[in-house]
Design a protein around this nucleic acid. Structure first.
Lengths: 189, 189
DNA sequence: CGGCGCATGTAACGGGTTACATGATTCC
DNA sequence: GGAATCATGTAACCCGTTACATGCGCCG
């Protein structure tokens, strides 16, 4: 079994969802640790169903066509549990931003700082998004306290922490760039 | 042009390197923001050379066959600069670890804590590796102070910070797991 | 003289992205 | 009636990984 299959099992373990829901989940809460488009999600869900790891139920949507809401079967849960027990593969990342930082000396200090400010803004936006999701989760937790929301909560906490770290790093980097060009401060005055 | 091509240009901007060097760089310093295997690096370098963005020089190695040490051409530098000036694409990540955390309630608290301790150890190892690389970089900086090592330095700082954040999160997560099972503490006494 | 680290390459295969395709419902 | 969001799917193509392949030079 390939990576995405287990990831979908984990996503469905948190709560039953449709392919559409999962696609949105990847774009928002899960974005900092996994990426997937709907065009890979739908076929994979179909495969999992054929393998007997998930089943779906047609649920009328408030708007648009009927939703195929998937949930884990017992076998699916067992498969997931076995996978969880094994150590994770090392993460794979493709992030252009640090690559661009590598050659930041190709930009003027002013431009470099502008880019870092932009990166900082993006990080703050992301942080706010994760914070909002965490608040939302807490509200849902009150409604159904029996549910195990520990995993999603831990991951949202991590998402917030990552973005806050990024913001701090941006500030340090900007400070370093400014220090390397004291004429900037002088001109400011 | 595709992502890897620009990344190689950036890697060669930092200093002239062989494909072998670049492969190792991806495994170590660049590992937290970009992944690439030698089998994709060599053909890509050849393509960049054909496009006139890099040139190579055969340099005898201390051990093994001659090294093809690549460096940017003027066109290569210009191409890189143009790419740097544009905003980066959003990062793409595949990290199994947070996915496994999602369903951490499928494990016993003891097992969950063991997994988090393991994750913490891995993060500490990585942090130490980045710290060592930063020290090494500082030493080289003394030798050739004219060189612009700002980019690599900033990225190593970021690597260290990421891993330290991870360690802190692991501690928080372990604490939460322990809090959710007070019987553990009780048994400890 | 075998094994390991250095060093560069090629080819098949697989998985995901981009683009194509369809249809329901609501709001303006 | 057109636009936007909801909702599910298919197919071609591209890129990168896995595996295959080769050869140097040192050390034990």
């Amino acid at each position: 079994m390939k990576g995405l299959e287990y990831v979908l099992l984990a996503g469905l373990w948190v709560e039953p969802r449709s392919g559409y829901d999962l696609a949105h989940w990847f774009q928002r809460a899960a974005h900092y640790y996994w990426a997937a488009h709907h065009s890979s999600i739908y076929p994979t869900l179909a495969g999992l169903e054929q393998a007997g790891l998930v089943t779906h139920q047609l649920v009328p949507s408030e708007q648009g066509p009927k939703r195929k809401v998937y949930r884990l079967t017992e076998t699916g849960k067992d498969t997931l549990q076995m996978w969880i027990s094994q150590p994770p593969q090392p993460p794979e990342v493709r992030d252009e931003q640090p690559v661009k930082v590598l050659a930041i000396d190709l930009l003027s200090p002013e431009e470099g700082i502008r880019h870092l400010e932009a990166a900082k803004s993006r990080a703050q936006e992301q942080r706010d998004m994760y914070s909002a999701l965490l608040l939302q989760l807490s509200a849902e937790e009150d409604d159904r306290p029996q549910r195990q929301w520990l995993g999603p909560r831990l991951n949202l906490m991590r998402g917030i922490q990552i973005q806050e770290g990024y913001v701090r790093w941006c500030d340090e980097a900007i400070a370093l760039l400014q220090a390397s060009t004291p004429r900037l401060e002088a001109r400011e005055k």
